[in-house]
Nucleic acid binder design. Structure first.
Length: 460
RNA sequence: GCCCCUCUAGCUCAACUGGCAGAGCAACGGACUCUUAAUCCGCAGGUUCUGGGUUCGAAUCCCAGGGGGGGUACCA
């Protein structure tokens, strides 16, 4: 028989008076978290996925009373008995039948302090989850966040799809991929760094609104904000542009904040964060000028841009053009000072090989990044749909790769062929869902929102 | 990659200036019929991350290695 959840018991019976007993029998199951045996009467605290409830076990009533008292902290049990409230008002299940379901053979972490060592928490998440309330709550929240996101997008006629994790040509982002090998085909494959190019192929195919919640893989450093595999929401919306995407992002994030936190006025790590739409829109150039104090643009002589970079301890590489130099200056001087939420709009074309040329500013593209709580939360653009222009951009990337840029893109010929069949004007978006979860759970480390973060293997 | 910090019983933590490695919880034995981290009595528990070195003596100081954390670089 399936047990009732402790939360349900509480909901149904919490109103009864102290010292009274209902006529109803409940069956609950979970782990023994605490135990207080006092001679002929024992109490235990049972925890299940939904919460905790007390077990009330008088020797007269409880079968194999000795055995019940001998249960270890961490043991799983199923208990049936009348719902009652103790004299002190604690809702309890009287132990009239019980059964041990699983044994905890390893010693229980300190029942008061729990687990403090982050290493143990991440490596033995199965322990962390049942002794650290905040960890359990965070992952439940994350699950709900994913579910709400899907529902919200589906309500707007977006269709969820799944595209390959193995890519013959890594693409869709500027990042170093992991590579692997398929024996039967005798080919090298790359784990995707972004699903972007496949999703846009689907728009070519006529799916006008698609999204994927994609696990992506980037062979880069690990930090409080980076895990080598992480979850990205990407969506593509035919007939939309990056302005429409901005509205979508602020609405989606505000919606999640309202439902998960009850408000759009959040506090993240002690600092206020107001996610109420609309979020400010600022141009990249304007912000760069304001924060760096520099009067620079794409026509500024290269030597001058390089000098500004060098002054700021940026190690300049020879093949960098003005766009890349401006981006470096922005990342050094401007981005760290932004808290947000803010949409940073219009990036240099040189660093945005998949975004559409800006309608008014040559050399720039219609792209934005959403900065929220000082971090890049989303990256989006009006997609580049012109196959000739895309080919030129790919070739420029490939040339960068040839001179040693390991993160540059390769030419994806099939993607170019797809564009030749016609991609309508399309707005595209990528959101770092792990970072969004960090924000909504108010946790400082990406490992707090990834169940099994990447760690060096333990030698057991 | 680089820099800084850290590692003591199953868990949480002590151990002064280099001088007998300890406590609480958990476990184990016992007492206890309304507890809430129950309480009380008793008992047991150690490669002080590993390996070297300095020293009469090392958890403590030095060197090398390993795990972890933070920062930094790259990036979402």
């Amino acid at each position: 028989m399936n047990p009732q959840s402790t939360a349900e018991c509480r909901k149904l019976h919490d109103h009864i008076a102290a010292g009274t007993e209902t006529a109803q029998t409940a069956t609950v199951a979970g782990r023994i978290m605490l135990r207080r045996v006092q001679g002929k009467l024992a109490f235990a605290t049972l925890q299940d996925a939904a919460g905790r409830i007390q077990l009330f076990a008088p020797a007269k009533v409880t079968p194999d009373y000795e055995g019940f008292c001998a249960l270890s902290l961490g043991d799983w049990v199923r208990v049936s008995g009348l719902i009652m409230k103790t004299r002190t008002g604690e809702l309890s299940v009287k132990v009239q039948e019980w059964e041990q379901l699983a044994q905890a053979r390893r010693a229980f972490p300190d029942k008061w302090h729990g687990l403090a060592d982050p290493d143990t928490r991440f490596r033995q998440r199965y322990v962390d989850l049942w002794v650290t309330d905040k960890a359990r709550a965070t992952f439940q929240m994350r699950s709900e966040m994913m579910s709400l996101t899907r529902r919200w997008l589906e309500d707007r006629d977006f269709m969820e799809v799944e595209t390959p994790v193995f890519h013959p040509v890594p693409g869709g982002a500027l990042a170093e991929p992991f590579s692997t090998h398929h024996n039967a085909l005798g080919i090298d494959l790359f784990l995707r760094i972004a699903p972007e190019l496949y999703l846009k192929r689907l728009v070519v195919g006529g799916f006008e609104r698609v999204f994927e919640i994609a696990r992506v893989f980037r062979n880069e450093g690990i930090s409080t904000r980076h895990n080598p595999e992480f979850t990205m929401l990407e969506l593509y919306w035919a007939y939309a542009d990056y302005g429409d995407i901005m509205e979508l992002v602020e609405e989606l994030v505000a919606h999640l904040a309202r439902l998960l936190q009850g408000t759009t006025h959040l506090s993240y790590q002690g600092r206020e964060l107001d996610l109420t739409p609309p979020w400010p829109r600022r141009s990249f150039s304007e912000l760069l000028a304001a924060h760096s104090g520099l009067d620079v643009n794409l026509r500024t002589p290269l030597d001058e841009l390089r000098a500004h970079c060098t002054d700021r301890d940026i190690s300049v590489q020879n093949h960098w053009g003005p766009g890349k130099l401006l981006l470096e200056l922005y990342e050094k001087t401007t981005e760290p000072e932004l808290w947000g939420p803010v949409f940073v709009c219009d990036y240099p074309k040189e660093v945005s090989p998949l975004a559409k040329d800006h309608s008014e500013n040559p050399g720039w593209v219609e792209r934005f990044e959403a900065i929220v709580a000082g971090r890049e939360l989303a990256n989006a653009f009006s997609e580049l749909t012109d196959p000739d222009e895309q080919k030129a951009r790919f070739e420029h990337q490939a040339a960068q790769k040839d001179v040693g840029d390991t993160e540059a893109m390769s030419v994806d010929r099939d993607y170019l062929r797809a564009l030749e069949f016609g991609l309508p004007p399309t707005g595209g978006l990528g959101v770092g869902m792990d970072r969004l979860a960090m924000l909504l759970a108010d946790v400082p480390n990406i490992r707090d929102v990834i169940l099994f973060p990447t760690l060096r293997p333990e030698s057991l």
